[in-house]
Design a protein around this nucleic acid. Structure first.
Length: 415
RNA sequence: GCGACCGUAGCUCAAUGGUAGAGCUCCAGAUUGUGGUUCUGGCUGUUGCGGGUUCGAGCCCCGUCGGUCGCCCCA
């Protein structure tokens, strides 16, 4: 039994997961992002520095044998910040980097939320212009499109942190109340209006008007125009309730949701221009998003969009009689050297069982090694009964693919 | 950390408080000409765990540990 909130991956699960990873990599690379990675275990203070001491309650942390306080990474950004800070001079700007870390959090699990998951992280570092925001949002859209999801399935809700900080500035909201103000907006969707109104005070009416009817943001105008040029405009919707709980976002922010509202957020991200510097690192503008495998997987499963491909066997080498096992094993080795996936009975089995095993592995071809192997020949047949032929083992590949056989049935009697 | 519901074979599920079962899977054998059938047989349970009530608990009560879904939190 796996620990609470942790998953075992049986072959089918692993194939499903790997299919997600493959598509993540494929799209990120298509956008010119390069992959990096870091350690799953980090010094505890790498995370408390960014998020404060209270985060410790949600971390897997412990003392290692050297009495160091360490934690399983709950997110990738601090690690990314360290890597970039140390060697950013080695790379031309902007950096477009992605990673697929397994990240951990210590909390009660619930739907779409376990204690570990894999998270695609894509970040652009060293570019302050909005073209970077457009590029990043286009990427998150294309990742989901690659899984066969459309604008009918999901929506990217766009917002602008600067819009709200300008708003608070203009209305004289004191510095110490601003975080609570943002939090109230963040929760406004899930709470009754009266409760939110109470938190917002005299500004409530104006805020609700903005939430309902939208507001002016040149940034979002530019981003939306840029997405329109790419033909991706139908995937986004301006929504000022999206502010992202975190304090460090500084510009355009976004969250991706499925249209049914049945699931948690699929992805989220935004611009965090001051974060690297605040972590004690290099002063570079940056933005990024994260997308986990759990919610995405739930949605794909619900839509029966299983992209996993379990590779099936190329050859199954059956042994008609144990007498011929040496010849069979020579053939197995030859096929494997030829880069074909080849399986065979690892212990003596009746021929019927062997053919059954070949069927189960969905082998494309079956070789039956029998008496003719003493003359260097083997029965070669297609798994689907379409043909059978006795061929010289040293020229076996000349007879493939089997579809080239002119009259396979006619050859069936050849021996 | 809080609340609600749920824990029976590997899986899906039965079993008035009265001897724990079925189907599927898996394994073995038979048969099918060298395949997808069909038979036959077999395996696995301290009914999550620990207490309590009772002549007797899978069933009722308490606790605990898991699971699911919410709350809190959200990287």
């Amino acid at each position: 039994m796996a620990l609470p909130g942790f998953r075992d991956f049986y072959p089918d699960d692993c194939a499903f997961r790997n299919a997600i990873f493959a598509k993540w990599r494929d799209v990120a690379q298509r956008y010119g992002f390069v992959e990096y990675d870091g350690p799953p275990l980090e010094p505890l203070d790498l995370f408390t520095k960014k998020s404060g001491e209270e985060i410790v309650t949600q971390l897997y942390y412990f003392k290692d044998k050297g009495d160091r306080d360490v934690a399983l990474r709950p997110e990738m950004t601090p690690t990314l910040a360290r890597l970039v800070t140390a060697r950013h001079k080695d790379y031309k700007k902007p950096l477009k980097w992605f990673s697929i870390p397994q990240v951990f959090r210590y909390e009660r699990q619930q739907k779409g939320r376990l204690r570990e998951h894999y998270q695609l992280n894509c970040d652009i570092i060293g570019e302050a212009g909005l073209e970077a925001d457009i590029e990043l949002i286009a990427l998150v859209i294309d990742v989901l499109r690659t899984f066969g999801l459309t604008e009918k399935d999901f929506v990217v809700r766009l917002s602008d942190r600067v819009f709200w900080s300008d708003f608070m500035e203009r209305h004289g909201v004191p510095e110490e109340q601003r975080y609570a103000f943002i939090q109230a907006i963040d929760k406004s969707e899930r709470e009754p209006r009266e409760k939110t109104a109470e938190k917002l005070g005299p500004l409530a009416d104006e805020v609700f008007s903005i939430l309902d009817q939208g507001g002016a943001s040149e940034r979002l105008d530019t981003v939306e125009t840029g997405l329109r040029h790419r033909g991706l405009h139908d995937y986004v919707k301006r929504d000022f309730t999206v502010v992202r709980g975190l304090a460090y976002y500084t510009g355009v922010v976004f969250e991706v949701f499925d249209r049914t509202g049945e699931f948690r957020a699929i992805a989220g991200g935004g611009r965090y221009d001051t974060l690297l510097k605040n972590l004690g690192g290099v002063d570079l503008p940056a933005l990024g998003f994260g997308m986990g495998d759990v919610v995405l997987g739930e949605i794909l499963k619900k839509q029966s969009k299983d992209h996993s491909e379990i590779r099936t066997a190329d050859f199954y080498v059956a042994i008609a009689d144990e007498l011929y096992r040496p010849q069979a094993m020579a053939l197995v080795q030859k096929l494997r050297d030829h880069d074909d996936w080849t399986d065979y009975p690892i212990k003596p089995m009746k021929l019927g069982k062997q053919l059954e095993a070949a069927t189960e592995r969905q082998a494309s071809y079956i070789c039956i090694v029998g008496p003719e192997s003493l003359e260097g020949k083997v029965q070669l047949r297609m798994a689907s009964y379409k043909g059978i032929k006795v061929v010289p083992i040293d020229r076996i590949f000349d007879y493939l693919p089997i579809e080239n056989w002119t009259s396979p049935e006619a050859d069936a009697s050849t021996s």
